[in-house]
Design a protein around this nucleic acid. Structure first.
Lengths: 167, 167
DNA sequence: TTACATGCAAACTATTTGCATAAGC
DNA sequence: GCTTATGCAAATAGTTTGCATGTAA
């Protein structure tokens, strides 16, 4: 994790981006995430840690980090935008439970290979991709016969952003 | 196309949804699209045709049609939400050119099969999925050495919503 | 010292909602 | 006639931007 920070700092400098106190704090905070995070959540963490940083700066910084390839941005629909560190992490796909909002990840080489094949056929130069499968996770189909929308449920669990939310 | 209208009308009635003049106009308008369309574009078409309908009604109706399975909604990221008729159309994936905004579609049974396999492994019950590959299309990599963002370009071409935008 | 970054508040975009009125069935 | 749908305008959520001020290099 320390070296990840080094890599990020190096990359920023290479791009002529300045290492401000705010950016340092944002890097530190985002590097704590094993998985994805969203801008608002990151902002909350920063505030909780006593870091004074504006929402605008968080958005601007996440944008820069995405541009420099240090972050990947995923648009999961329903107004959910997630970021995750791309350094040292394989690209992966998402299973999104529409009941509890839980997001599972999986890596699938063969699917990736087939995508490349398609791109080649279209003479399309792929930069990145994003596969989301929406449905009902094992726990939810076991526990809940009714269904709340992912959005409602997400609001209810927003303090437990990174792990399974089942009991 | 006439029968598609019949199917839609039938489905609405089954769900106890009323066939208002506005909904009729929305159905007529959306059924003209061979491919995807977006809410704002549809609204513009309706207005162009002299139909008086509010934006709220368009959104509400598209929501209903999606709920009843007559439409599929795709969230392509970068604030693009597209709809397309699902009746009589296979599900497909998207190649999105980040320079010209052009969207290509492809169907890939093997990728779908592998997805089902993954879902099964996770005991995840898939409802729908969405695969987007972002990159540069053949024309763009040939024509334009520089690159405008998809968003900028999209604004420039918003009057040609459904076809290739090259030359 | 100078170009780049920040904070603030206002703007923006896509979408949703409350409520009074209108109209299918 | 009862219930559902509509239009309007205001609300919402997420994100971006203009501008004066601050600061890394």
């Amino acid at each position: 994790m320390q070296d990840l920070l080094q890599i990020c700092v190096k990359r920023l400098k290479e791009r002529g981006l300045r290492l401000t106190a705010e950016r340092r704090a944002i890097l530190r905070s985002m590097l704590r995430h094993r998985r994805h995070f969203d801008p608002e959540g990151l902002l909350n963490e920063l505030r909780r840690d006593g870091v004074r940083v504006s929402r605008a700066t968080v958005y601007r910084t996440l944008g820069h980090l995405t541009d420099t390839g240090l972050l990947r941005r995923y648009d999961l629909g329903d107004r959910q935008t997630l970021y995750e560190i791309s350094v040292g992490r394989e690209h992966h796909e998402h299973l999104i439970c529409t009941r509890c909002g839980m997001i599972f990840e999986f890596v699938h080489d063969e699917i990736e290979r087939l995508q490349d094949e398609v791109c080649h056929r279209f003479r399309f130069e792929p930069i990145h991709h994003s596969l989301q499968i929406y449905g009902v996770c094992a726990e939810c189909s076991r526990l809940e016969p009714g269904s709340r929308s992912a959005r409602d449920r997400r609001k209810a669990v927003e303090d437990t952003p990174d792990r399974a939310r089942h009991a």
